Simulated assay, not measured.
Amino acid sequence: MNTQHVVVMGVSGSGKTTVASGIAVATDFTFAEADEYHPESNVTKMAAGEPLTDSDRWPWLAELATWMSTRAAEGVSTVMACSALRRSYRDVLRAGPPSVDFILVDGSAEVIRRRMGAREGHYMPVTLLDSQIATLEPLEADESGLVLDVAQAPDELTRQAVAWLRSH
């Protein structure tokens, strides 16, 4: 059975969780929030305003790839909200299931900063946004993906993503 695996990516505050959960509702794909798979040590670092290092990320990314691969083996399609900021991180995610599509929610730092300031109960401080923007590597031509404009309403972003996934 063919399955589809989608990673909605972008910096913290871009709306990737909102878009990914909207895709899950529209497609009946199994949803995962990658942040929930971080070990406590990573969460503690981020909450303290410390950016994660690659050595912090590799085991976490491998676990996410395994999660998608396991769902693929079960015949279940997935959608995940995950920053996936660097090409090398996306390469690890792609190593799990047979194929992965990426949807990048990208745009103005000011729009994202405003959204981050308005949300409650999230451990990622606004102060880490600039380091995330500096880390973000755009999707490359050989990566299956779609780029969405963060300035659009979440419902519109979800609609565009679902339309692309269905046509893809």
Rank of each mutant, 00 (worst) to 15 (best):
G15E: 01
E110P: 05
W58I: 10
G75M: 13
S108A: 13
W60L: 01
A34I: 00
L61Y: 04
I23H: 00
A134M: 06
E143G: 10
V79L: 03
G107E: 04
V105P: 00
L61E: 01
H168T: 15
D54Q: 11
G15C: 05
T17W: 00
E74Q: 12
Q132V: 07
L93T: 00
G107S: 08
D91A: 09
V7I: 12
M1Q: 15
F102P: 03
V150T: 01
L146E: 04
E36R: 15
Q4H: 15
F102K: 01
V8F: 00
V6E: 03
L85Y: 02
V6R: 00
A151T: 14
S99D: 13
A151I: 11
S12G: 11
S55V: 13
R71N: 09
A34F: 01
G13T: 06
T53H: 08
R119S: 15
V105D: 01
S167F: 10
E50C: 07
R86N: 08
L93M: 09
A24G: 03
M116D: 08
E143P: 07
R119Q: 15
S12Q: 05
W67V: 03
V92M: 09
E140V: 13
A153D: 12
E120D: 12
E143S: 14
V150M: 04
V126R: 11
V25G: 11
A109R: 13
